[in-house]
Design a protein around this nucleic acid. Structure first.
Lengths: 205, 205, 205, 205
DNA sequence: GCCTAAGCGAGACGGTACGTCCTGTCTTCCT
DNA sequence: AGGAAGACAGGACGTACCGTCTCGCTTAGGC
C-alpha cells in the first residue's frame, strides 16, 4: 500500500495545467508527428514548466496515452455515452457490418489517427506501455465484440463451441493490421467481405 | 566529370564494415532495445566510424531493416533455401496448421523477436520505412499464403469467388496482432483454432 | 490604512523558525560549501517552509550574513562582551601583536571560516551585500585599530600626521589577503613581522 | 603520465571556437555580471554547442580564468611585451609610486574589473580555482615587487634582514583589499601614502 | 472565550540552467 | 576514395533550484 517515496500530492494538482498538457500533446503529435514531439515542446506549448510534466507522468508516451484516453472519454460524453455495447438487432451480420463501417470512419479521422498510431507503435517496443494500451483501450473494445458474439451464440447464429474471444479476431485483426501496417486499402467493401468470410466459418453447418 | 556529392562508390565499399555494422545493430537491439540503440553505439561496437554508417544508410531504422533482411537471408540459406512456397500436400487445413505452427516457433525466437518488433513499431510511425517493411518482409510472406489458397481454389477446397488476399488475413492477422500487441497467448492450439474457424468460412457450402 | 503588500508583521515572527534557519544555514555552508547551499536545502533542514525564508530575507546571502552576525554576537556574549576596544597597555607593538595573534586563531576556527569566506566572496560580486558586509562586520573591527592608533599618536608613538585609517591597513590588509586568497602561510611569526615592519614606518623618525 | 580516460584530442581543437568562447565569456561577465553569466549563454553568444565548452573546460570559472589570462597575454603583446620586471631607476619610492599609480588605472578599467573581481570571488570559495588564480595571475605580479625590493636591498635602500615577500604586502595588500572590498577610495594620493608609510618601515634606521 | 487575520509547514507551479547524450556534418589522417 | 576517429553546432533529455503561489493549520491579539 505504500506510495512511492516522493509521490506528489494529487489533491493540489492543477487541472488547468493538465488540460493544457493534453491539448498540447495531441496537437503536437498531430502536427509534427510522434518522434518530433518532445516533452520540452509540449511544456512550451502548454505554457507549463517541464517539471510539471515529469511530476505526473513518467514519459512522453504516458502523457499521450492519458491525453488520448481523455479525448476518447470526452468524445464519448459528447456523443451521449455510447459504446457500452454493440448494437444487437438480431441480425449479427448486419450489426457487425455497421460497427466495422463506423470503425473505418473513425480510423480515417486524422485527430484519432496520429496519436493512436503513435501509441500503438510505442506499445510494440515498450512492454509496460503496451500492456496499458491494450488493457485500457483495445481490450474493452474487443470485449464488446465478444459480448455480441455470445448473444449470437444464444440466438443460435454461432456454433456454441466457438470461442468468442478468438472468433472476433477473424474480422477485427485483419482490419487492425491493414490500418496499422498499410497492407491494403480500408473500405466498406473490405470490412463487409471480412464479416462475410468470417461468419461463414462460425455459423452452424 | 564531377560526381554527385552524395554518391559513394559502392564498388569500393568495405564488406567487413557492413557485416560488423549488421552484427552490432542486431546485437544492440536485442540487448538494449531499439530506443536505446544509437548510431553512435552501433558504430562504436562495430569498430567503425559514424560516417561509414551515414554514408550508406539514411537512418538507424534502415540499418536495422537491412541487417534483419540479411539475417533472414542467411538463415534461409542455412536451412537450404526453403520458403519459396508453402507445402502443398493437398490437405489445405493440414498445410496451414503446419505452417502456422512453424510461424509460432519463429515468433518465439528471441533473435528474431527484438529486431522485427522494432521494425514493425518504427514502420507504424515512419511512413517510408513502413512501406519498405511491408514490401520487403511482410507481403512476400503473405503472397505464399495467397498462392496456396489459389491452389486450394483450383482443387475445389475454397469457394472460387473468395479473394485469397483477403482470406489469408483471417488466420494471419489474428496471429500477427496477438504477437505484436500481446493481446493473447500464442499457442499451437490457438493457430489450429484459427485455421478451423477460417476455413469453415471459405469452404464451399 | 492599507499596508504595503510586502510588510510582514515582525511582532508575530516565529523566533523558533529564525533560529532553526540560522543553524541550518551555517551548518550547510560548513558541510557542503556555499555554492551547494540552497534555500530549499536550508528550509528542509530547518523544517521550515520556503516562504518563511523568502518572507524575511531577500536572498541566500542575506540569510547567511544575519546568521553569521548572530553567531558572532552570541560568541561575544559567551566571551563576556569583549571587543569594544583593543587592549591599550601603552606598548603599541605588544598590543597589536597580541590582537593579531588572536585574529590568527580566529581565522583558523572552521566554524568561522566557511561562512565568512562565503560572505566575503559573495560581497566581491554583489555590490549591495558587499556594502553591508563591510559596514556591519569589517569596518567596526577596523575602527578599533584606528582608535588604538590614535591613542598611540597622543602618546607620541606614531607620527601625528599619519592617517590611522590608512596606517592600520599596513598590517590588517596583508593578513586579510593571505587568509582570503591563500597567498601565504598565516602564523604568529608572520603577524609579528608585519607589526614590526609597519610600526617602523609609522614611528617618529 | 596517463591522461584522463576520455581526454579529447587537442590537436583537432577549433581555434575559432576557443576565441569565440573567450570573447563571449568576457563580454557576458562585463555586461550581465558573473552570476548571471551561464554556460548556455556563453555557448549561445559564441555560436557554439554547449558540449564544446564542457569538452575543454570543467566549469564556468575555468572558462573565465583562461579567457582572462588570454586577454592579459594579448594586452601584454599589444603593449610590447612589458611586465617582465618593474622599472628600476634607482629611486625605489618613485618606482613604486609609478607602478602603483599604473595599477590604480588598471583597476579602474571596466574590461579588467568585472572578470577579475569574479575570478577573485570564485577563488575564495573554490579551493582549486583559487590556487590557480593565485599561481597564474597574482603571484607572478607579486614576484616583480619582490625582485624590485631585493634590488633595493642590494642598493642599501632596504634593510637586508627584511623579507621582500612580506614587505611587498605592506603596499600591495591594502590596495588589493580596498579594491576588492570597497573599503575605501582608490586614488594616487592613497597609493603614494602607502608607499611613504611602508618604505619608512623598511628603510635602514 | 470567540473571531479573524497573520505566520507557518508544505509543496505545486512556470521557469531557467544544469551537465549529459545523441544527431548529422565536418575534417583529418591513414590505408 | 573509403574508412576510423572524433570535434563540431545543435537540441532534447531528466534534474535541481529559483521565487511565487496557494493550501490548511496553528496561534495570536482585539472584540
Amino acid at each position: 500500500m505504500a506510495q512511492n517515496q516522493s509521490a506528489p500530492d494529487a489533491t493540489r494538482r492543477s487541472e488547468r495545467s493538465r488540460r493544457a498538457i493534453y491539448d498540447a500533446a495531441l496537437a503536437l503529435v498531430a502536427e509534427a508527428g510522434y518522434p518530433k514531439t518532445t516533452i520540452e515542446g509540449i511544456a512550451a506549448r502548454a505554457g507549463v514548466g517541464k517539471q510539471t510534466i515529469y511530476r505526473w507522468w513518467p514519459s512522453k508516451a504516458d502523457v499521450l496515452l492519458e491525453a488520448f484516453l481523455d479525448m476518447a472519454e470526452r468524445a464519448a460524453e459528447a456523443a451521449g455515452h455510447v459504446a457500452h455495447a454493440l448494437p444487437d438487432t438480431g441480425d449479427l451480420a448486419a450489426d457487425l457490418r455497421a460497427v466495422l463501417r463506423a470503425t473505418v470512419d473513425e480510423l480515417r479521422d486524422p485527430a484519432f489517427e496520429a496519436p493512436s498510431r503513435a501509441l500503438a507503435a510505442e506499445g510494440l517496443v515498450n512492454q509496460e506501455l503496451g500492456r496499458r494500451f491494450v488493457a485500457q483501450l483495445l481490450e474493452p473494445q474487443l470485449q464488446l465484440y465478444a459480448d455480441r458474439l455470445r448473444s449470437a451464440q444464444r440466438a443460435g447464429d454461432v456454433r456454441p463451441e466457438v470461442d468468442p474471444r478468438i472468433a472476433l479476431e477473424l474480422f477485427v485483426s485483419p482490419l487492425a493490421q491493414r490500418w496499422l501496417q498499410h497492407t491494403g486499402p480500408i473500405t466498406y467493401d473490405y470490412t463487409d467481405t471480412l464479416v462475410d468470410y468470417a461468419l461463414n466459418g462460425l455459423a452452424p453447418r
